[in-house]
C-alpha cells in the first residue's frame, strides 16, 4: 500500500509528495484523524524542504489541529529554528496557544532549545503568557534547570529595559 501524504511529508519524500498532490490540491491541507495537516507533519519532523514546498503550493500555516496544536508549536518543541522563522515570515501568530495553554515559546523552553527561544523572543514572543498550570517561560526554565534558556530570557529582558 502507499504511504499517506502525512507520512510522505514526515519522511521528506518530495518526489512522491508531488505526485500525490497532483491527484488533487484538496490533499494539500487534508487533516489526519487528529487534525494534523501535511505541513504539521513536515514541521514536526524538521523537513524544511517539504515545509517550503507545501507553503509555496499554498498550504495553510495557520491551521490548528483538534487540540489547537499549531505548526509553529510543533517546530518549536523540536527546536527547528529555521522552520520556526520560515513560519513567522508567513505571518503566523508567535503567541498562538493551545488547549493546555502551551505557546511556541513555552514549548521551545520545554525542549531546552536556546536558539529557538532566542528567535521567538526576537520576533515578539510574549514572556508573560503562562501555561494553564501557571508556569511562565522563566518559571519553566528555572523549574527544569535549563540555565542557558534562563540566560537567554534574562538577556532579552535586559535588552527590552535598555531600549525603553
Amino acid at each position: 500500500d502507499t504511504l499517506s501524504i502525512h507520512q510522505l511529508a514526515a519522511q521528506g519524500d518530495l518526489v512522491q509528495l508531488m505526485s500525490h498532490l497532483q491527484q488533487g490540491s484538496s490533499l494539500l491541507n487534508v487533516p489526519d484523524d487528529r487534525g494534523f495537516t501535511p505541513l504539521m507533519w513536515a514541521a514536526a519532523f524538521g523537513e524544511i524542504a517539504v515545509v517550503k514546498f507545501l507553503l509555496q503550493m499554498g498550504a495553510d500555516p495557520h491551521t490548528l489541529a483538534k487540540e489547537r496544536e499549531s505548526t509553529l508549536s510543533l517546530a518549536s518543541i523540536q527546536g527547528y529554528t529555521d522552520i520556526v522563522l520560515l513560519l513567522l515570515d508567513h505571518g503566523v501568530d508567535v503567541n498562538i496557544y493551545d488547549w493546555n495553554g502551551g505557546t511556541p515559546l513555552l514549548y521551545a523552553v520545554h525542549g531546552n532549545h536556546v536558539k529557538c527561544v532566542e528567535a521567538l523572543l526576537a520576533k515578539g514572543a510574549d514572556l508573560t503568557m503562562e501555561a494553564d498550570s501557571g508556569y511562565s517561560p522563566m518559571d519553566l526554565a528555572v523549574a527544569l534547570g535549563f540555565k542557558k534558556v534562563q540566560q537567554a530570557i534574562e538577556n532579552h529582558v535586559l535588552k527590552l529595559l535598555q531600549n525603553n
Partner: peptide, 21 residues
Amino acid sequence: SQLSLYTSPSLPNISLGLPAT
C-alpha cells in the same frame, strides 16, 4: 520494502511532573 511509519506528531503536557505553582 518494509514501510517505516512515523508516529503522529504530538506536544507534551508542559507542566507534567512539575510542582503546582
